[in-house]
Amino acid sequence: MNMVDAVLDGWTEIEQGIARTAFDRAYTRSIDQLAASVRAKSEALSSAETIWELHDFLSIQRHTIEGSFDFRPEGILFVFARLVKDDLLSIDELDGLGIDKLSKITAMARF
């Protein structure tokens, strides 16, 4: 996972704390969803083929999650927008960020 402990330039310490907390919550939700999906899929394991399909599914999910959760400053607003769009985070959980940042996140989450 690319959860780099970066300092977000132009962000107050309070904003950075809000961002980190929201980011971590979304990551936890993503992992919880994956675990639930794996539990459901594991109940259907009945052959070597279904086992390999589960392996492939997990490989894809790992790649997707690791690529999605990146706390680097240059892309964090895009990350938050995608997390809002994917229902892993609500815009309310970012309350306390500057209005300019919230506006950008909200606008990008529409697309």
Rank of each mutant, 00 (worst) to 15 (best):
D100V: 04
L34D: 05
A44H: 13
T21S: 08
D95A: 14
M3G: 09
L77N: 10
A35M: 11
E43S: 06
A36T: 09
D5T: 04
W11M: 12
D95M: 06
I65A: 06
M108D: 08
A44Q: 15
T28D: 12
S103T: 14
T12R: 00
A35D: 09
S103D: 14
H55C: 09
K104N: 02
F23K: 05
V7C: 02
L34P: 05
F57V: 03
H55R: 15
E43R: 13
S59E: 14
F111P: 01
E13R: 07
L45D: 05
A40R: 10
W11D: 00
G96P: 03
K41T: 02
F57G: 06
I76L: 14
D86Y: 04
G17E: 15
D56M: 04
F71E: 06
S30V: 11
D87K: 14
R72E: 12
Q16F: 01
D87L: 03
D86H: 11
T12F: 03
F78K: 12
G98A: 12
I76R: 04
K41N: 02
Q61L: 01
T12E: 00
L58E: 05
I105L: 05
S47A: 10
M3F: 08
D9F: 13
K104R: 06
R20K: 13
H63F: 08
E93H: 10
W11G: 00
R62T: 13
I105C: 05
D70E: 01
I65T: 07
M1N: 09
I76H: 08
S42E: 08
L102H: 03
Q33E: 14
M3H: 08
L54T: 09
R110A: 14
E74R: 11
